[in-house]
């Protein structure tokens, strides 16, 4: 018993120490948003400044809520669709055997090795031909096909979904799609949670694609909208950082809400395994 308590104290103190290296910068980021831009460059700051209201005014003078809404619904759409598509593909690679499976899987892997910006010009041109430039579709549809997501879920299905479960579901006469949705998906819930969080974050932070496909201020996303809070020879870092900090709120909320399902995922597996 005593041993346990020592373990616990050691563990928590070590993790707290590590956490300090991450909390302190995050905290500094938050209070950077309360400073006058140029005062940020004078050295490390430790206490909140007095410029919060001014920075907030700068942000609100732009169409910030619109940007926020745009980012939010784009990120949500991408997250949901990408999770579905990745899970379906990961399931296909993990459960079925089919012609060229290995080749297709390697192909998916290979696509991760191409830097994402590579096809940008051609992409914009294609979007123009499809008539969806200056809409949000080019921001929502392409990231739905995520090689990273497919790879992750394939590995996760491989590691955590027992074949027998699927087989017995089939014997019970469940259709393939029903098996997938009702039997298989619950097994990968923790994987879906962590992946969903990353999809949301990546879409939320994406800067380059919105920059080149959207040329109407009403369609801007947060990173784009925040980035224009500057003039040529002077970037308003205080206001920008405040805006971007506000942008991290949904991510933190999602994280707190969904980290619960790491644990529920654990119990689900424990019960079934």
């Amino acid at each position: 018993m005593k041993n346990t308590r020592i373990m616990r104290v050691l563990l928590i103190s070590f993790l707290t120490l590590v956490s300090l290296t991450t909390i302190v910068p995050f905290y500094i980021m938050l209070i950077m948003g309360t400073y006058y831009s140029n005062d940020l460059f004078r050295g490390i700051i430790a206490v909140p400044g007095t410029y919060l209201v001014e920075n907030m005014k700068t942000i609100l003078a732009s169409d910030f809520f619109r940007f926020y809404f745009n980012s939010f619904y784009i990120a949500c759409s991408v997250t949901v669709l990408a999770l579905l598509v990745s899970a379906m593909s990961g399931y296909a690679f993990s459960i079925y055997t089919f012609r060229l499976k290995k080749a297709v899987f390697n192909f998916v892997l290979a696509t991760m090795m191409i830097p994402t910006q590579l096809g940008l010009i051609a992409f914009v041109w294609e979007m123009k031909e499809l008539g969806i430039l200056n809409t949000h579709l080019p921001l929502i549809i392409p990231p739905v096909a995520s090689a990273f997501g497919v790879f992750w879920l394939t590995q996760y299905f491989n590691g955590s979904l027992p074949r027998e479960v699927i087989e017995s579901a089939r014997i019970d006469g469940a259709g393939e799609f029903r098996t997938f949705f009702q039997i298989a998906l619950p097994f990968v819930k923790p994987a879906l949670t962590s992946l969903g969080l990353l999809f949301f974050l990546w879409t939320w932070n994406n800067y380059l694609t919105p920059l080149v496909v959207v040329s109407k201020e009403s369609l801007y996303t947060v990173p784009l909208g925040i980035n224009v809070l500057s003039q040529l020879y002077r970037t308003d870092y205080g206001a920008q950082i405040l805006g971007l900090s506000i942008g991290t709120i949904p991510i933190i909320v999602l994280f707190v809400v969904f980290s619960r399902s790491f644990i529920s995922g654990l119990t689900a597996v424990a019960v079934k395994g």
Binding site: S19, I23, M29, I241, V256
Partner: peptide, 15 residues
């Protein structure tokens, strides 16, 4: 701790 470990990943690059 899960959250704190993840903070650097969501801290804004500019900052």
């Amino acid at each position: 701790f899960e959250l704190t470990n993840f903070l650097p990943y969501i801290t804004t690059p500019v900052a």
